[in-house]
Nucleic acid binder design. Structure first.
Lengths: 338, 338
DNA sequence: TTCGCCCGTCGAAGCGCTTCGACGGGCGCG
DNA sequence: CGCGCCCGTCGAAGCGCTTCGACGGGCGAA
């Protein structure tokens, strides 16, 4: 193993100079820096991560706690994870993967052992998430993906799901639909009171009431059979239904199939709006008008906020809500006047 | 921060004794160990990961390189990742997430900086995977999930996909089917010559030839539209078709739909066998007879092998192939004699 | 011309842990 | 009864890096 003293000797400088040339924390003459860099390349020097962490009390590693509970759409979660890793690398950091299994203990462990410099936590509950007191107490900076009811003392990023719910309704209302329904995430997601799911419901309901629409809300398991049942129930209970908002990635296709089987064509008889990743919306049998879940932006945003906290650079807002963006596709049309 | 010297003082022993009590690398009297443990708990001591890594040249972190290329089924990949993390924790190790984006450089970086003790690499190509020479050259132990054509000097685990392909064919043959087809992964997976996809084809073809069946192989994009096209093509080219093997998680549902739309009922007119995770096979509209992709076993196996290499315990075989297990479900029946 | 200051560099002191050699005391064996 | 051995413990020396204080030399200002 080649170490910093080897580089120093080879370049004819002291180890501290090599360190400063690398970190830029003190001025180094252009010529010296060049010599040091050449030596580093020639010798293939790579600073030892552990030694660095010990001396600087910075590990350059971030922890990412990913949710793997029932009801979470895996590809969406994975999208966040990937964008977090990518963003972290841009800041010369690595990402440690924590699963839900360890729960709070895992967070505490990596924090207490100084394994990581900061935490990113996904899938936050709206109320009484047991991890939040811990995060507030820890002296390690952290960022949540998802916004709890009380974000005091925390830093959160997410799509503005409430506004997303409203936007879907507004769009349907603008197209003349008067009777609408929200088909949501699996029931367990609501039981856990997961923040994002709750907020969509709030937005949906608020906008529907504001516009004087007749509306209903239906959680739905992530299975084709459940989708079919919901579709049948909807037709029975709201025969005048012409607009649907879907917030459940897994059942978009089966749901559309079910409606068509029941004699409702999308969009001719039923306009459909979804909250889901763009790539999903585009590749469905009927491309769906949707509000994008911008995993890349959210993941990158979380990392950027975390780095800002780590560097003490500027102020970090408690909550950062990304504005929803609706893309019109083939699944929505103006209501046929009856 | 409470450190080992604090614990030592509190327990009335030397720091080295605390260390040995923790690691068990030297005998410590029952009574001393107890005192040390009490002090650790009372003070809430947590060893500093960086210091530990520096002194012991062991970081207790594993790197996991996950594939995110086109054609890889995300939930399956995620299943592996989760099982790797879980298994690693059982061995008191953590997992660093590496994405494909960094490619070989990422592997080299975490190895050279001693950030990790070992590497787990997913989605190996059958031929000329550029990472393999690197892995062979690195002095860090590594395990592949997936088996390349030439595994010399490597350690690999995977489902025996060749046998899985054969097993599916054997089952169909045993049920009397004489004309069969394999509907496989997206074309890009074959272009990359991904190991597991190739092997299924080999097994499928070999078994079909052995049994004297008429057979064909069809890569298929992971979209419903592509599934439909393949179904139509199949009926056109092999009108006598009664058995299908599907090795493409994403299109199972659309494929079944497509066949039914074309007048072929599963299993009445068409027996269908898949290679996919059990939970998927069970929750399909028609529960599908399948060979399980055992992500938990594979992930755990990879970690166990890696730990064995790390500890120098016993010999590690070059390739470990998990035998396929076929579960009979509703999608297969004996061929109606015509 | 001289003083003071700053730029660029060096040396040394750790960061918190592991590990190696050493050592004292108890016990079994001759 | 005494020698040697082993068990349990200690002290000290690093692991490879960062960082702090110090210092020399050059330059601008007085």
């Amino acid at each position: 193993m080649v170490k910093i003293t080897d580089v120093a000797r080879h370049a004819g400088v002291s180890p501290s100079t090599v360190s400063y040339a690398l970190s830029g924390k003190r001025p180094i003459s252009e010529e010296t820096r060049r010599r040091v860099e050449r030596s580093i390349n020639e010798l293939g020097y790579r600073p030892h991560a552990g030694a660095r962490a010990l001396a600087s009390s910075r590990s350059a590693v971030l922890a990412l706690a990913i949710p793997l509970r029932a009801g979470v759409h895996i590809p969406v979660a994975m999208g966040f994870a990937v964008s977090v890793v990518t963003a972290a690398r841009r800041h010369d950091h690595d990402v440690l993967l924590l699963t839900q299994e360890e729960g709070e203990d895992g967070l505490r462990r990596v924090a207490d052992t100084a394994l990581v410099d900061g935490l990113i936590v996904m899938d936050v509950q709206l109320h009484d998430d047991p991890r939040l007191p811990l995060l507030r107490a820890l002296d390690l900076p952290s960022v949540l993906i998802g916004v709890p009811a009380d974000p005091t003392g925390l830093t959160c990023v997410d799509l503005d799901f409430r506004a997303a719910g409203e936007l879907c309704v507004e769009r349907l209302a603008a197209l003349g639909h008067r009777v609408i329904a929200l088909i949501g995430s699996p029931p367990e997601v609501y039981v856990r009171r997961t923040a994002f799911a709750q907020r969509v419901v709030q937005g949906f309901t608020a906008a529907a009431d504001r516009r004087g629409l007749s509306s209903s809300v239906h959680p739905c398991e992530a299975t084709p059979a459940a989708a079919r049942l919901v579709a049948e129930q909807l037709l029975r209970e709201q025969p005048a239904l012409t607009g649907v908002v879907v917030h459940n990635e897994a059942i978009l296709t089966p749901l559309i199939d079910a409606f068509e089987d029941l004699g409702l064509r999308v969009p001719a008889d039923l306009s459909l709006t979804a909250i889901c990743p763009d790539d999903l919306a585009e590749t469905l049998p009927v491309p769906v008008t949707s509000v994008a879940v911008p995993s890349t932006e959210v993941g990158a945003g979380a990392v950027d906020l975390l780095m800002r906290k780590l560097n003490g650079t500027g102020h970090t807002p408690e909550t950062t809500l990304l504005p929803p963006r609706l893309t019109e596709r083939a699944s929505t049309v103006a209501r046929a006047t009856r």
